[in-house]
């Protein structure tokens, strides 16, 4: 579904990514793990068009998208749930969700999608008129996820969904992610929490200093000594 081929990305003049290649297949859940500053978020920004790679290509369902502006890529039903939630703080939960279905194809389905996400996140239904900025961290993460789902994406991309959340809430969030996956969604996941990321993913890539250093099945990487030493602190 998504094929990233040898991209180099820069912030200004400093190169952040070099020769990154990876793939996400239909209905797969793929994780990219690595330390803080390894370039994980930049990969995602390159995919969704917030950063344009200087070299390399990105194909989504066979169409090259590396030069498209972010909103065009969103319209192709690629949905990124950004790091740190980034809900619209002064808007209500409901308004946030409505914006999640801003793209024309989703706007028609707004009502049904809304019912679907409220089924995943019943708590959101009960606080839908509250300003998003006033929610707790866990609620905001749920809202961000729900908002990402509102466009009924073909590819759901999650950037650090566990960041800053209490362990118990992290568990809850990943439960939901798994159930979303089971419904047939393709998911690309970036996580610092290597343990949980590798344990739920079909395949995973390890990123270090802007390069992919290892790749493999989630479970096998989880048991790889090098990974355990470098990322799991074991």
């Amino acid at each position: 579904m998504l094929k990233v081929d040898a991209i180099d990305s820069y912030y200004g003049d400093s190169q952040v990514l070099s020769g990154i290649s990876f793939e996400v297949g239909e209905k797969e859940i793929v994780a990219i793990v690595g330390n803080n500053g390894a370039g994980k978020t930049t990969i995602l920004k390159s995919v969704v068009g917030l950063v344009h790679p200087r070299r390399g290509s990105i194909l989504f369902k066979g169409i090259s998208i590396e030069h498209l502006p972010a909103h065009k890529i969103s319209e192709m039903r690629v949905s990124l749930v950004p790091e740190g939630r980034c809900v619209f703080p002064l808007m209500t939960v409901l308004e946030n969700l409505e914006l999640g279905s801003h793209i024309p194809s989703a706007r028609k389905q707004r009502k049904t999608n809304l019912e679907k996400v409220f089924a995943y996140f019943p708590v959101l239904a009960s606080i839908k008129m509250r300003a998003a900025g006033k929610l707790s961290g866990g609620e905001q993460q749920m809202l961000a996820l729900a908002r990402g789902l509102m466009s009924d994406p073909e590819l759901l991309i999650l950037d650090e969904p566990s960041l800053g959340l209490a362990p118990i809430v992290v568990g809850e969030i990943f439960e939901i992610i798994l159930s979303i996956h089971r419904q047939g969604k393709t998911i690309l996941l970036v996580e610092q929490n290597t343990n949980i990321a590798l344990s739920i993913s079909d395949r995973a890539y390890v990123l270090s200093e802007g390069r992919i250093t290892m790749q493999g099945k989630g479970q096998s990487l989880l048991h790889d000594d090098r990974v355990r030493k470098a990322y799991l602190g074991l």
Binding site: V48, L50, A70, H71, M91, E98, L99, I103
Partner: peptide
């Protein structure tokens, strides 16, 4: 809503397809 979203967080607004 689009205008308010852009004023609150232009980058995230783009992710909404705005």
């Amino acid at each position: 809503k689009v205008l308010r979203a852009v004023s609150q967080d232009p980058q995230t607004a783009q992710l909404m397809g705005i």
